[in-house]
Design a protein around this nucleic acid. Sequence first.
RNA 1: GGGCAAGUACCAAAGUAGUCAAACGGGCCUGACUGUAAAUCAGGUGGCUUCGGCCUUCGGGGGUGCAAGUCCCUCCUUGCCCA
Length: 395
Amino acid sequence: MKKIKIEELLSRGAEDIIDKKHLKEALFSGKKLNIKFGVDPTGPNIHLGRATILMKLRDFQDLGHKITLIIGDFTALIGDASDKTAMRKPLTSKDIKENMKNYLFQIGKILDLKKTNVKYNSEWLGKLSTKDLIQISTSFTAQQMIQRRNFKERWEQGKEIGLHELLYPIFQGYDSVAIKSDVEIGGFDQLFNLKTGRDLQRLFKQKPQDVMTLKMIYGLDGRKMSTSWGNVINITDDPKDIFGKIMSLKDELIFEYFECCTRVPMTKIKEIKKTIKNPKEIKKILGKEIVKQFYSEKQAQEAKEEFEQVHEKKDLPTEIKEIKIKEAELNILDLLVLIGLSKSKGEAKRVLEQGGIKIIRGESINIEKDWKKTIIIEEMIIQSGKRNFVKIKKF
RNA sequence: GGGCAAGUACCAAAGUAGUCAAACGGGCCUGACUGUAAAUCAGGUGGCUUCGGCCUUCGGGGGUGCAAGUCCCUCCUUGCCCA
């Protein structure tokens, strides 16, 4: 049983492992390993992409290993360049505090916080002297640092690269020295930083950590996952929202998500792939599995039923936002803006003309395309598009 | 410090005096269809409007001109090259 778990740990969702043989032996030896995971407290939300790493850590945790979570409060002053093609703005200590509160709460959805050792890297990096830094730096060359993909791209495109950014991998690497890590896990784009950890540990006469990088999952639309693209699932998203977002996932990404973001056994995934042909049905399973992980089985089931209700049966959602209105009657456009279904009258007019507005009074559904129309305010539900509903009540 | 580019709507990118609320594309929105908030197809995508139009927008400010995103001046920002 344990053997299977270890095999899965090493293969599932993994992109690269250095040194695989060594890590495998260490895992089988029964020794309690110190697993390092570093986060920069930059963004307030953990999305599914980052969650895959946390899930992997949880696997290690379940096998009895120790997780050391390093909060990069010091390195945040620099900003890692791994997932950016432009320079990142340094954070203030106030930002960091604010972000971290949120972080630990979210991390707690996946990791067992009681068994997680949380450290702030300012503890040791803050003590590092200029002299120390120079000594460490002598083992690296500018070429090495620039060689990495992100910098190379920026260099070639003539974009700026801050001198301090070049130091980032060294600081992250020094974290490994400070906590004497045995294994470090990160996204595929972290490979360079993780390897620098090995170099530094050697420099400090420690055994170099093994390094595990995980596959990066793409965003819902198949593009790179990025909060600013809006193609991201945050683990704190509403269960119904997570489920819905999964339903909008590009079909080609379904099994990637299954592998990286769920704990459904690989054999079962293969079986699903073979037996279920309708992607919609597979997505439903996937959606449930993912919601379940961050919420509960029950909430996952509810999210699924809600989706079926609204999108398959075209019924009303169970919860509809309610707004009370004083006026006895209102122009349809004014009404739509007032209840927040449209940002402006122009937008309201467009949606109306395109047939996106439905007014539901009791059983009947009327579609009104006249924007001069005055609506008598009474208890009713207004639907805009496929999934925006507002219930109107008289004040 | 010197030289050269560039700054346009959510993003990206055309436009170099009038037909520009501003091409194309991405995103987003709506509809059709369906196997879904997928794919595909179609349409839409600054605000207000008495539906005639009116108002605001192309880094900021100023100017020329009947008319400026488009020309001139100036300032700011960014990048590249040289020192």
